[in-house]
């Protein structure tokens, strides 16, 4: 149980960050309101870890333990859960993902929706901390970087698709390779037979 206590300590800053972000989004409380008092359990089977996400007072509470029964439970190994997180899949597309969902799908969808649609006016909050001019410059730089990153990713994706499409045409297809393989096999058989006859003739002498 000391591990759970350590997890609890590690979750504190994460929870503080989530709460802070949710507090900066004026619509998060409305999105979370229908799930007040409900709990989602995320059970990582390998390594064995549990995380409970509860909706309390219109914000999220993270904990490694929960005294009651969770309303929903997502379970799978760390790889599968992380893949799900990266993919941002909807709960109805969990089939074949290696993650199982028990209980309310509405809660999972609602929490995902609240987190993904979080719309925080970072510029405004940053300007209150460091002033209007630096925050505007930072905001522009961040937007430019994000746009460049998005363009870069898109271009990389297109390049990879083009490359694979071109290479695909150059590579011998299975239906083209099969007759060649068959002829090669027949030749191999004839050679074997020829070899056998030669050995037979040599032995007769």
């Amino acid at each position: 149980m000391s591990l759970a206590l350590l997890q609890s300590a590690l979750l504190l800053p994460a929870e503080a960050l989530v709460k802070r972000c949710l507090a900066l989004d004026p619509l998060s409380a409305t999105r979370l309101a229908p799930f007040e008092g409900r709990t989602l359990e995320i059970h990582c089977t390998r390594p064995e870890l549990r995380l409970f996400i509860s909706v309390r007072n219109s914000t999220l509470h993270l904990s490694p333990v929960h005294g009651g029964v969770a309303d929903s439970r997502l379970s799978g190994n760390a790889d599968k859960l992380l893949a799900l997180l990266r993919r941002g899949s909807q709960p109805h597309s969990l089939h074949g993902s290696g993650v199982t969902l028990e209980g309310s799908t509405t809660l999972v969808a609602g929490l995902r929706d609240a987190l993904l649609r979080m719309d925080v006016d970072w510029g405004y909050h940053l300007s209150r901390l460091i002033g209007d001019l630096p925050s505007a410059a930072l905001e522009r730089a961040a937007e430019a970087s994000a746009a460049a990153l998005t363009r870069g990713r898109q271009r990389l994706h297109e390049d990879v698709v083009d490359y694979l499409a071109t290479e695909r045409h150059l590579v011998l297809q299975r239906h083209e390779a099969q007759p060649f393989h068959d002829r090669l096999h027949a030749l191999q058989l004839r050679l074997d037979r020829l070899q056998a006859r030669l050995e037979l003739l040599e032995n007769r002498d």
Binding site: A4, L5, S8, G37, F52, S63, V65, H66, G67, G68
Partner: peptide, 17 residues
């Protein structure tokens, strides 16, 4: 650590509104 332990204890309470 007492703060963490207290928080942990409350998690086991299953207290609801």
């Amino acid at each position: 650590t007492h703060r963490l332990i207290k928080r942990f204890t409350v998690e086991l309470s299953a207290v609801r509104p």
